[in-house]
């Protein structure tokens, strides 16, 4: 009797162990699939056969720009959808990004130059420091730094916060600055990774405007 109980316990234990292993495996695969889907929008550096220069190729090019609604510095929600009919440059930047500080004055000038043709910039701050709204003190500190930085760089266009929350949709944003040029129909027509040049940015603004 005692032996039977022991054998039964052992069998049950083995079944339970396999059930746990199966569940853990399922969870792992589910998470891996989610990660794969999230990373599917990631771009790649490809060497241009003609020039030998590395070129950033984004799978978002030619596709609808992922929708988002983020708060601006005054706390107002701003959605990309509300700019349908305009050409929009979605520019991801951060207060700690030195190349972004070189690029921003160019953006300010280009926005002034092309606004009348229906062009707008959304400057999406992407601090990448893992600070969320639940940590109010750190969140407020981040917000104050973003506002100070935006003021210092005379960013007259909407500055949105918490770009990290839409990072996966835009390819992970592992590198900054990152710019997505969206045409009047909401399609991404060009993507730039890193600091390029004012002329390159202007070229892609014209593309977004359909000039």
């Amino acid at each position: 009797m005692r032996r039977n109980t022991l054998v039964l316990s052992a069998v049950l234990f083995i079944f339970a162990t396999f059930a746990w292993a199966g569940w853990a495996n399922f969870e792992y695969r589910k998470q891996a699939t989610e990660r794969l889907l999230a990373s599917a929008a990631k771009g790649e550096l490809v060497v241009d056969a003609a020039t030998g220069a590395p070129e950033y190729v984004s799978p978002l090019k030619g596709k609808p720009a992922p929708a988002f609604a983020l708060e601006d510095l005054s706390g107002k929600k701003v959605s990309l959808d509300s700019y349908k009919g305009k050409a929009v440059l979605v520019n991801f930047w951060a207060t700690w990004c030195a190349p972004c500080k070189i690029e921003t004055p160019w953006l300010v000038e280009l926005r002034d130059q092309y606004a009348a043709q229906g062009f707008e910039i959304l400057g999406v701050s992407t601090e990448g420091d893992g600070v969320g709204m639940d940590d109010k003190a750190a969140w407020d500190k981040d917000k104050a730094a973003i506002a100070h930085s935006a003021q210092q760089m005379h960013m007259q266009y909407p500055v949105l916060i918490d770009g990290d929350s839409i990072a996966n949709q835009y390819g992970g944003l592992d590198e900054l600055p990152m710019s997505f040029f969206v045409d009047r129909n909401g399609t991404v027509v060009a993507v730039q990774m890193g600091l390029t040049s004012k002329a390159d940015i202007e070229g892609d603004i014209k593309k977004a405007l359909g000039n």
Binding site: T17, F18, W20, A21, A24, N25, Y28, A32, R35, L36, S39, K42, G43, E44, L45, G172, D174, E175, M193
Partner: peptide, 18 residues
């Protein structure tokens, strides 16, 4: 074997340009 099946897997999906 069960433990290996559950946790002995590597992550090959993360990518970065750097």
């Amino acid at each position: 074997l069960a433990a290996l099946a559950a946790i002995g897997q590597t992550d090959s999906t993360s990518r970065s340009l750097v």
